[in-house]
Design a protein around this nucleic acid. Sequence first.
DNA 1: GATGAATGAGTCTTCATTCAT
DNA 2: AATGAATGAAGACTCATTCAT
Lengths: 186, 186, 186, 186
Amino acid sequence: MKKPNARERILETAGKLFHKRGYSEVGINEIINEAETAKASFYQHYPSKEALCEAWLQSVHEKSDNHLKSIIEGEGDADSKLSGYFDDLRSYMIQSEFRGCPYSNTGVVSGNSCTGIQEQILEHKDCLRCFFRELAFQKCDDREKADEAGDRIFLIYSGATTETQNLKEIWPVDIAQQAALQLIQF
Amino acid sequence: MKKPNARERILETAGKLFHKRGYSEVGINEIINEAETAKASFYQHYPSKEALCEAWLQSVHEKSDNHLKSIIEGEGDADSKLSGYFDDLRSYMIQSEFRGCPYSNTGVVSGNSCTGIQEQILEHKDCLRCFFRELAFQKCDDREKADEAGDRIFLIYSGATTETQNLKEIWPVDIAQQAALQLIQF
Amino acid sequence: MKKPNARERILETAGKLFHKRGYSEVGINEIINEAETAKASFYQHYPSKEALCEAWLQSVHEKSDNHLKSIIEGEGDADSKLSGYFDDLRSYMIQSEFRGCPYSNTGVVSGNSCTGIQEQILEHKDCLRCFFRELAFQKCDDREKADEAGDRIFLIYSGATTETQNLKEIWPVDIAQQAALQLIQF
Amino acid sequence: MKKPNARERILETAGKLFHKRGYSEVGINEIINEAETAKASFYQHYPSKEALCEAWLQSVHEKSDNHLKSIIEGEGDADSKLSGYFDDLRSYMIQSEFRGCPYSNTGVVSGNSCTGIQEQILEHKDCLRCFFRELAFQKCDDREKADEAGDRIFLIYSGATTETQNLKEIWPVDIAQQAALQLIQF
DNA sequence: GATGAATGAGTCTTCATTCAT
DNA sequence: AATGAATGAAGACTCATTCAT
């Protein structure tokens, strides 16, 4: 009984499970069972569980990056863009059952030896930071002030994500949205 | 070779390891080895690994609570108290090698079945939130406005902790400190 | 269903299997099944398969060493002792179904990283070499000549063991016995 | 990217790896990677790993046989031929990093079911034995005495090979060479 | 003649927990 | 109160082999 496209099925399944329960709490066996693949098929496509995690984070990053770019390049002023971002975040948190940021969550459990994962975290976080800085810069010509505001919004976004996950309540996103809209005023 | 205070040695050892590497990444074998206890002795004091985790979080919460209370009841105005809190956070993050919040970190890997752990997270986070609200209230008689400011500071504190851990850099604490001091102005 | 003395049962079982089929061809599963133990019980007593192998070689060495000592210290002249040694070897080869020397056999498949195993091989072989030298010295006061004869007998013993195993025939032991008796004449 | 002579590349690669690390320690994945072939191509040329091993032993045997024949048919007396053989053995052991006899090494790990491999071992060993008998016969017309001497030299050769591999020292070859030269005197 | 994807059974090892003493 | 031995389930990973194209 040969099943094609094992590679994609594995990545998709692992993505769901990693996101929902955390990298460390999901075993290879569970992934291959749910993806209906043989264990050796898994290792044909991904040299290790860690490599699979990297592939997953990579795929998440691509989606996230496209999202950020579409906002930056989209219509409307910075305020509405920023507000829209938090609207999206709210939907995302609810839809993902309050699981928060895949990168932060993975970083908590990936040991210091996982340099590949750590690099991806840094890259993703940097992109987000730059996104908020860029948004702020669209309202304020002063690069320095814009950067400062962007960094603050980045932190309040991160806090909202973290605490929504912790408390299983959505209010942190609401608070963050309001705060962000105020922080972007110059 | 009788070792007294096995209970405390276990708790202390587990605390160090859980904090440094994360609840899911530390096995009880490692804990009892480092605490120089027998495995059965461990289970005499703590019915399960999860129970030990709860005891650890409880002990952390007590220290944290005392810290927050001493700030609230201490000398000085709200600004200096708030600023001092972030100074302490900075020291803590550096000294703990950027491991971040034990509660958030544990929440990421503790499954949905761990209600005891989840409850502790809620309690701890609520205490922090109230702390920031209280601090804001010391500067602003308007309860509603103070609460809103407190919540925002809470989120930016959380974001700073999360991202300092992710990026292994201290700047988020600096940014959060500045932002908090501004958010508390009315 | 608790079974005591798992440690000994494991060592005994592993000894039989390692000897009969070779270290690399016997898996942990087979050992614990035949020893009727749980897998974790195995790892409580032996940190690794390699460590178990070392324990086995150690136990073999002890028996071998006692055997050699009893010959050296026993009654009779060197000729009869030497001849008796090869008689014992003949019995051993037949009884063990021509599996040859545990040390040589293990050395073939234990990678270069197994320093513990390699050390045991060196030690065992050195003991054998000294045994033959000592036997020769009992017939010849000239240390140098005795050593040379002992080394030659050691090699012919080794060759007999190797080729008896390869050919599944006993004649190499017979030939070696005759040759040894001649080599020991001065 | 067509690669001709896949069959030969596989055989050559497998030969190197089998010899250096042992039949049981080398997987076909490693072989096909190093030989830059596809897995299915491998099974097109060799029905199994065991068959590949037989092909390898066959190729070794051919070289060995030519070597023995060239010695037998070569110039010089038996003494110098015998001495030369051990000179060659010395070079071989050093150059192959003390890996010893491919046949003996394979015999240790090839299960009883591998009749093809076992047959090759018998054949190769018999050729060697006959070689030494023939050499002895060149010095002694008495067939019986020559055979006995040949067998003894065969065993001391085998012991030298085995122990050089075990001890990672070359002295057994030296000792064996001297002993052989003495054993061939009548 | 050649290939990459798929496979089930196996490898060694660690997990949190419980037992009898 | 303390202990060392025992356990089943699971962990990540590799094996030689076969399939459809």
